[in-house]
């Protein structure tokens, strides 16, 4: 039995069981008697907001990968590094572990998140009833791994702080880092604004139809 069938729901803040007003009262939202938060049966406008954030992050994803993240300045010249060239550098160097960490955190995780959220949104909108369990797991995974992409942003800021010997050598942060940061934050917000209960809603509608 699902909450929505009994007009029951859960307060996102304090997990209190909420009774929603009957449909003829004109409002769907209720106020949590315990913590006072407004509770709606589903996150309001979840699909639209998630799409907006997701599209924005997909756009920023392009300069994040094409523009350099940081720039190493030595007396021999200046060398700029993008995310991908950083990974390749460590592969050639033989530091496979570091190459793997950066590859997973900076390339695999953001790409995976954007694709998965897009897939979840499309499947919810088309009312698909297939693989609901797997899709819920995908969502949990997306929410869990999102923050780990920040690793590269921290690496850049630590390198900037440590390699600071003007005029011998210096490291600067470049635009790519800012775009990448925006991708991480926007995909995190997108994952938060998606309502996983919609996955089962669509499946249930199909069953009744």
């Amino acid at each position: 039995m699902r909450g929505i069938e009994r007009r029951l729901g859960v307060c996102r803040v304090c997990s209190q069981l909420i009774h929603f007003p009957p449909p003829d009262e004109g409002t769907v939202a209720a106020h949590c008697p315990r913590c006072g938060s407004e509770v709606a049966p589903r996150k309001p406008h979840s699909v639209q907001i998630t799409w907006a954030l997701l599209i924005a992050s997909a756009i920023f994803y392009i300069p994040a990968n094409l523009l350099p993240m940081m720039e190493v300045q030595t007396f021999a010249g200046t060398e700029a590094d993008t995310i991908l060239s950083g990974v390749l550098y460590f592969l050639q160097d033989g530091s496979y572990l570091i190459a793997a960490v950066i590859f997973v955190a900076s390339i695999l995780v953001p790409t995976f998140k954007i694709l998965v959220l897009g897939y979840l949104l499309l499947s919810v909108q088309s009312g698909s009833a297939a693989r609901t369990r797997q899709r819920r797991r995908l969502y949990v995974l997306t929410e869990l791994i999102g923050r780990w992409s920040m690793v590269d942003v921290y690496v850049v800021s630590i390198m900037v702080a440590l390699v600071h010997f003007p005029p011998l050598s210096e490291i600067h942060a470049r635009e790519g880092a800012i775009f990448f940061l925006l991708v991480v934050i926007l995909t995190m917000l997108a994952a938060m604004s998606f309502d996983p209960r919609l996955i089962r809603d669509a499946a249930q509608k199909e069953k009744h139809a």
Partner: peptide
Amino acid sequence: VVCCSECDEL
């Protein structure tokens, strides 16, 4: 009775 915040199951 509790309601799951992820899948709405009671």
